[in-house]
């Protein structure tokens, strides 16, 4: 008798299948980020003894501030270098984009493709669909950042061992939380509206705007207040890679993310699903 045992385990739940669906694209996301990080680490030895460059960059302080660089000297420290490439720059944007793509696909994408109809026919609650898909997103975010943390641990000798264990963990937990927030936002908008284009547009727009304002507020005093509205501010203002866990700031990211998951649950549970 053919039984359910013939079905591969990852396909026996929505959670498992959501992860399984990413099996081809995950290596590219992780590989791309890891590549960026490795190149950054390997560039350190050639940067560290260039006092002349540092003097040059001092004149560009306002521009550097836009990218979250407090002083030119930071650029040439391991922490400054990695922040400028990864955690306050392109790296965190990629993590945010990944989270948004998964958060959008979770509900709005599934509705847009029409596959939500059969999913809803199963003897499983709408809440469970939302939570399983969100759990898959969270697990993959943790996976990405765990991999980046390993790269940092392995690469630390190249950086003269100047990164702390605390710092590495804090930076990657923080980056996970930033992804968690953006993913939850996309999930929430998808849950409330069911519209893929709108979900992607608003989420990605917020990602870009948040990055822009978090940077520009460093040089434009009048925009200082906008920083508080960006996840990047709560992630990086205490420089976790240098200083370890800013518990209060990270809690803000976590709580906002959880509230957004709640909004997604509420929004998806209450409305018609029109495929």
């Amino acid at each position: 008798m053919p039984t359910i045992a013939t079905v591969i385990p990852v396909l026996r739940s929505i959670f498992g299948k959501t992860i399984w669906e990413r099996r081809r694209s995950m290596p590219w996301w992780i590989g791309g980020l890891a590549f960026l990080l490795i190149v950054t680490i390997l560039s350190y030895p050639s940067f560290k003894d260039t006092q002349g460059l540092e003097d040059l960059f001092k004149n560009m302080q306002p521009m550097l501030a836009m990218f979250g660089v407090e002083s030119a000297a930071d650029l040439f420290s391991p922490v400054g270098l990695i922040n400028a490439r990864m955690y306050e720059s392109i790296g965190i944007l990629v993590i945010g984009a990944f989270a948004i793509s998964m958060g959008t696909a979770a509900l709005a994408g599934e509705e847009d493709r029409g596959t939500m109809e059969l999913l809803l026919m199963q003897p499983i609650s709408r809440r469970s669909i939302v939570l399983q898909k969100h759990a898959a997103l969270t697990v993959l975010l943790i996976g990405i950042n765990a991999f980046l943390a390993i790269v940092l641990f392995v690469g630390n000798p190249v950086l003269d061992g100047l990164l702390s264990v605390q710092g590495i963990l804090a930076a990657n937990v923080g980056a996970t939380l930033v992804g968690f927030l953006f993913g939850s936002l996309a999930l929430a908008i998808g849950g409330v509206t069911g519209k893929r284009g709108m979900t992607n547009g608003i989420s990605a727009g917020y990602l870009a705007a948040a990055f822009f304002f978090n940077g520009i507020a460093n040089i434009v005093e009048g925009l200082k207040w906008t920083q508080k509205l960006t996840p990047f501010h709560w992630f990086s203002r205490a420089d976790p890679l240098a200083n370890g866990f800013p518990m209060g700031d990270f809690a803000v990211l976590l709580v906002v993310g959880l509230v957004l998951v709640g909004v997604g649950l509420w929004g998806f549970d209450r409305r018609d699903v029109v495929v």
Binding site: T3, I4, V7, I8, L11, R12, E21, R113, T115, Q122
Partner: peptide, 26 residues
């Protein structure tokens, strides 16, 4: 208007739906 997961085979898909239904016997 039947929409299913384009990249999955019928066997994978049906197995998936059977699983989340709690259907043991295929």
């Amino acid at each position: 208007e039947l929409a299913m997961y384009d990249r999955m085979t019928a066997r994978q898909m049906l197995g998936f739906f059977a699983s989340i239904r709690g259907l043991e016997d295929l």
